[in-house]
Design a binder for these strands. Structure first.
Length: 456
RNA sequence: GGAUAGGUGGCAGAGCGGUCAUGCGUGGGACUGCAGAUCCCAUCUAAUAGGGUUCAACUCCCUACCUAUCCUCCA
């Protein structure tokens, strides 16, 4: 398998422990409703985890939940409740949304506040090694002591414009130094530590969590491309300072942003559309396909038109799939892929999860199937169906229709009655039968003198 | 100012040193009592501009211009 690493470019993937992939993806800060842009990252890595599993890897997918942070505290203050009420509410909302997007590949959602001992232990070790110093408002990491700081993002510390966005804190040794522990301010939640009451910095949560589950290094680290600097640089600096190892993660994968009207969709710009809003008018499958049918690293332009367009495309795949189900009598065969199509598709996916190219190939296959379906035997249909099912096991873009509803025998009988009416040119009756079946979830299609049907 | 990723047909969007994906849209055709679905054909001699390398560049190199993201809140 080849995976494109943010720093090294496309490289052959070698897992650290044979057959095992430890993957960590930056999860949300639970202070608000997730928006569409956030969802893209989680849908993508859900696919990655599932695909790697179909390739035989035992994947441990770990995601953090930042449940203590300035924004959570601010939110709690705004609404006059406490931070736990806020983080609990948005955590469970996040989980609901993940569920409705079909994201079920994560092994552990790790809440930062449950790892306070590990966080304090990391800070302690960093301090013992001389990487951390105290000011009157917190403990900071000396970025200049860690020589590789900036390597991931290609940044040169001396060219970083201090205060480009955030006010310079004069008490720090270097404007780039970041907090690993923030001392308690009046009214804020706090934990005890050897340095006094306070709470952890943002970056230390993740390294504490990953060290706890994976140790000092692991295979894949994923997240949105806006986290490359400084968040992921900080993680690398913290963990490698402690471990002395040459890497934190073997591969760094970053998913592109979602743009809306020429700008990044973000909470601070207030130009975001929440995912539950989109889910009101689009199915889980449509949303997943929309994200997955594009290169994961590119910026995506979000619009209703684009979403609608990709839904049209998906409908073609779904319709073909439904026809195959009927043709194959529901029997799928994974081992009858005589043309080696799934092998070809796998080769495409093995090339840095090239889902865009993958779907281009799926569309070609769809056209071929549609061309041949009328004269296709059940065995071939079952073989194609096997490919679709395999694809769906990691893409999650097809609805599997249940056999519930009107029994097949009754449908067949009604169709022959309707066709008799048609022969007798009693079209009002035949159309009425079609309409009744439609209202009961059966779509009829007359082709080449034969009436085919499928469940809607 | 620095860093990163890009600029492809009406639109969205890949890959690739020669054969120019894929989808959507639009127009036409086939099949149909109608509808739907599907197939076929067309839209297509697409590549920000200017240089260079090459037998050959959309693909590699250089310059300019433009866009997005990051420069310590962000997925």
């Amino acid at each position: 398998m080849q995976i494109k690493d943010t720093m090294k470019g496309k490289t052959e993937f070698h897992e650290l422990h044979k057959g095992r992939v430890n993957m960590f993806v930056c999860g949300p800060t639970v202070y608000d409703i997730p928006h569409v842009g956030n969802s893209r990252v989680y849908v993508f890595f859900d696919m990655v985890a599932k695909y790697l599993r179909t390739r035989g890897y035992s994947v441990f997918y770990l995601q953090n939940i930042t449940d203590i942070d300035d924004k959570i505290i601010n939110r709690a203050a705004e609404e006059g409740s406490d931070y736990q009420a806020v983080s609990d509410r948005y955590y469970s909302l996040y989980m609901d949304i993940m569920k409705s997007l079909g994201i079920d590949s994560v092994n552990i959602y790790a809440r930062a506040t449950l790892y306070m001992d590990e966080i304090i232990s990391q800070i302690q070790r960093l301090q013992d090694l001389g990487y951390v110093y105290a000011t009157d408002d917190g403990l900071y990491f000396r970025i200049r002591k860690f020589v590789d700081y900036g390597k991931l993002s290609g940044q040169d510390i001396d060219h970083i414009e201090a205060g480009a966005r955030v006010e310079v804190n004069e008490k720090k040794e270097d404007p780039g130094d970041f907090a690993v522990w923030k001392f308690r301010k009046p009214g804020e939640p706090f934990w005890n530590s050897p340095w006094g009451e306070g709470r952890p910095g943002w970056h230390i949560e993740d390294t504490a969590i990953t060290e706890c589950h994976f140790g000092p290094s692991y295979d894949i680290h994923g997240g949105g491309s806006d986290l490359i600097f400084p968040h992921h640089e900080a993680e690398i600096a913290q963990m490698r300072a402690i471990s002395g190892l040459p890497i934190l993660a073997s591969v760094w994968m970053h998913v592109g942003m979602l743009n809306i009207n020429g700008n990044k969709m973000s909470k601070s710009l207030k130009n975001f559309i929440t995912i539950d809003q989109v889910m009101r008018s689009h199915s889980r499958e449509e949303i997943r396909f929309y994200f997955l049918n594009s290169g994961y690293r590119s910026t995506m332009i979000f619009s209703d038109a684009a979403l609608k367009e990709s839904s049209e495309t998906l409908k073609r795949i779904q319709t073909t799939y439904d026809k195959l189900v009927i043709k194959a009598g529901g029997r799928a065969s994974l081992y009858a892929d005589r043309q080696g199509i799934s092998q070809k598709l796998q080769g495409i996916m093995d090339n840095d999860f090239d889902s865009r190219e993958f779907f281009a190939e799926i569309m070609k296959m769809t056209t071929e199937i549609n061309r041949a379906i009328d004269s296709m035997d059940a065995e071939s249909a079952a073989s194609y169906l096997g490919i679709f099912n395999w694809m769906n096991s990691f893409m999650g873009i097809l609805k599997e229709k249940s056999d519930e509803g009107i029994p097949v025998k009754l449908v067949d009988d009604l169709i022959s009655l309707r066709n008799q009416m048609r022969r007798e040119k009693m079209f009002s009756v035949s159309d009425a039968i079609r309409e009744i079946l439609f209202r009961n979830g059966i779509i009829l299609e007359d082709r080449e003198g034969v009436t085919e049907w499928r469940r809607s």
